[in-house]
Design a protein around this nucleic acid. Structure first.
Length: 104
DNA sequence: TAATTGACCGGAG
DNA sequence: ACTCCGGCCAATT
């Protein structure tokens, strides 16, 4: 079980999330067969190569909100990208359950 | 080499 | 619904 395999798994899953859908760090980790490694998923997304086309913005915390503090640049960027796909936030910055990705 | 730091999570209070 | 806490473990100090 190498770290590289975990990374590959996560990247694979991430690329499978369709536009307009979202999931959480923890769920991705669990889908990859590594429950409890949510932080590693966050670490991977943080270190994504500059030119990557992976939809990092479709990943939220388990509570359904972005991992960034409201008002920060990253937060606004994520909100804009999701809005472009029809995913809107509630007043408390939470994404409604109907947008959550259900594995095919 | 050791300590600290996170784009996290679930349970408990 | 919200805060606190312990577990998580690679990357960074």
């Amino acid at each position: 079980m190498k770290t590289d395999e975990f990374k590959t798994q996560i990247y694979q899953l991430l690329s499978n999330i369709p536009p307009g859908k979202v999931t959480s760090y923890g769920r991705l980790a669990r889908m990859a067969g590594h429950p409890g490694r949510a932080r590693m998923v966050g670490s991977l997304l943080k270190q994504l190569p500059a030119g990557s086309t992976l939809p990092w913005f479709r990943v939220l915390t388990a509570s359904g909100k972005p991992a960034f503090a409201p008002g920060t640049e990253s937060f606004e960027r994520q909100r804009a990208l999701l809005a472009r796909e029809g995913v809107t936030f509630s007043a408390s910055h939470k994404v409604s359950a109907e947008h959550w990705w259900q594995q095919a």
